[in-house]
């Protein structure tokens, strides 16, 4: 046993490649079984004839993929992308100041971080239902506003596009705060001190030093918000009253009431392509940023 262990250790030390293989094996197997294979199934199902009960027949067809370019589905996709972009932007506007406050706090930092993560203690579904109770006509917010006398008629908040946006932003804000906080924390205070010593006012220190150096955190957070927002369907069902159709609702519908699994798979692939475009854009952004700038 000990001999085997020594041998293994030697092998690992001698060959970095062998070490890499061993270390990546669990994740690789996991990804293959639970990501690559299902994705392959989705990809092949998109090109199969559909079975009336759901499922597919053997054989190949392109009708489902061709159907994707119909304006009806592109409109839904466009709306989903737009809504997700706005949600991401709002989440950023809310999250950056939060991250700044947490970084600057010394005594309360642990507590504040804990509060950011706290929502994860309950499921997204439960939080969404809680939102319903807050914003419905006879909900807490309307009751309060009416009691104080600010409004007479209850405000229509639930089942509006605004409610969907609100649900997405509140649901995903922690995903935005944490990466921004991480990059803010890594920021070397000496750089800010140098900028100050050279006479840069606070806003300029932020624009020229803090913001560019925390951009990777902003980009990472934005991806973490944008991607799940784009695929979401529960929020628009529950807070939008199913009146705001998103691409996620379309996919879900194809696998249930429409009993059209291949078209649902094709829609999923479309969603995947949009996300990939976002990822590639991010990679490009990274590359242009790391390229050394010519000095003046």
């Amino acid at each position: 046993m000990t001999r085997f262990r020594t041998m293994l250790r030697d092998a690992l030390h001698r060959s970095p490649r062998f070490e890499a293989v061993v270390l990546l094996l669990p994740a690789g197997v996991w990804l293959a079984i639970f990501f690559a294979i299902p994705l392959g199934i989705v990809a092949t199902y998109a090109f199969r004839p559909r079975h009336i009960l759901g499922g597919v027949y053997p054989g190949w067809t392109t009708v489902h993929v061709v159907r994707l370019v119909e304006p009806l589905y592109l409109v839904v996709l466009q709306r989903s992308v737009l809504l997700s972009l706005v949600a991401t932007l709002l989440a950023l506007i809310v999250s950056y100041p939060i991250a700044l406050v947490i970084v600057r706090a010394t005594r309360w930092r642990a507590l504040l971080l804990f509060l950011v993560v706290l929502p994860f203690w309950t499921s997204f579904l439960v939080r969404t239902y809680a939102t319903i109770f807050l914003i419905r006509d006879t909900g807490l917010i309307n009751h309060l506003l009416q009691a104080v006398g600010v409004i007479r008629q209850p405000l229509r908040m639930l089942y509006t596009p605004g409610a969907v946006l609100f649900g997405l932003v509140t649901g995903f804000v922690p995903f935005m705060v944490l990466p921004i906080y991480a990059s803010l924390e890594k920021l070397d205070p000496a750089l800010l001190e140098a900028a100050e010593a050279l006479g840069a006012p606070e806003w300029r220190r932020f624009v020229r030093v803090t913001w560019p150096l925390t951009l990777p955190g902003v980009v990472a957070g934005s991806m973490l918000v944008f991607v799940p927002a784009l695929g979401s369907f529960l929020t628009s069902d529950l807070l939008g009253g199913a009146k705001v159709e998103l691409i996620g609702n379309l996919v879900q519908n194809q696998f249930t009431s429409a009993r059209n699994w291949p078209f649902g798979s094709a829609l999923s692939l479309l969603l995947l392509v949009v996300v990939m475009i976002g990822m590639l854009a991010r990679l490009r952004l990274d590359r242009t940023r790391t390229r050394p700038r010519r000095g003046t």
């Binding site: 009806l72 589905y73 199913a242 009146k243 159709e245 519908n253």
Partner: peptide, 8 residues
């Protein structure tokens, strides 16, 4: 299904 999607 198509018409329902158009409604939604």
């Amino acid at each position: 299904d198509r018409l329902w999607t158009e409604v939604k």
